[in-house]
Design a protein around this nucleic acid. Sequence first.
DNA 1: CACAATACGTCAGCTTTGTTGACATTCCAA
DNA 2: TTGGAATGTCAACAAAGCTGACGTATTGTG
Lengths: 168, 168
Amino acid sequence: MPEGSSPPMGQSLLFLTDEQLRKGIEAMFFAYRGFTADPDRILAQKSYGRAHHRAIHFIHRSPGTTVNNLLSILGVTKQSLNRVLRTLIEDGLVASTVGIRDKRERHLHLTQDGAALERELSDAQRDRMRAAYRAAGPAAVAGFRQVLEAMMDDETRHHYEAMKEKIE
Amino acid sequence: MPEGSSPPMGQSLLFLTDEQLRKGIEAMFFAYRGFTADPDRILAQKSYGRAHHRAIHFIHRSPGTTVNNLLSILGVTKQSLNRVLRTLIEDGLVASTVGIRDKRERHLHLTQDGAALERELSDAQRDRMRAAYRAAGPAAVAGFRQVLEAMMDDETRHHYEAMKEKIE
DNA sequence: CACAATACGTCAGCTTTGTTGACATTCCAA
DNA sequence: TTGGAATGTCAACAAAGCTGACGTATTGTG
């Protein structure tokens, strides 16, 4: 936090101008469109939506997760998630198995078909991400991640950090 | 995960790993929630939604813009925009005036009330942005913007660039 | 001038995805 | 055994996107 401090305060606080912040806000808005564009196209063909993508993504990410856990990650109501989950289960993309230790819980897994769709979606999304990363370079990417993390709600960041530790 | 690898390729391409890309994707998802959280809270009280926020933002940004222009910036249909615009005009937040050169066009401006809401919303959003920027520092912010710009669709980036030049 | 194209508004209907509220079931744990 | 937690389901509703069709100025063009 200790910025430039005394002498010339280095690169100064010019980057905190309302103008600069506004540009960041617009960049965030426009970039998010690109971020979702490719998966959206694929999903539209299969008459699914972003909600399905999110469910699939996080089930893939945390196989065996419970409905409740997924709920808090996605930040939606159980009714809303249930509708999406039901179609995914009916269509054979997601398997829901009764918990062993706690039979009230349902553990969620991707089926082969589900995993295939997950791959298709995340390949598309990663392709764009990879192109952006490559164009911007490693230093920019580090900054990108830093700012995004600082932008999250505390509770959300908690989920994010928990995810991060899972695989690496 | 391919950790160490060999000595060459400098900082290497490790930042293009699927793992790294996935983290970036999740960071984007979680951060966007934070990004919209504060304005969402304000909007909910006034029974408006994000669509209203977007319209207000870009009308403020480009006073006198036409409906068609707004349409292409927001990337929605005129029916969708019209619904939002109608309520904003009815509520006296936006003024629509017939074009001078071309009387088919409507030029959109914020009224005093509209400008007040715009300020309230963007203050809230900027506060979070500012905190994130300050925490991450100028170098990170530059990287943040670089990656976001690289992530946009070409057409979208065109809008973004046009905006950038407007005020600075 | 006549006609096509443009800009805008609107009606109707549909979809996705979110919300509340109410209620039943199952089952763990005190 | 009983209370509460986890889940599921029904109903109703809202925001915000979509398509398609139509009407009305207005403008540009052949």
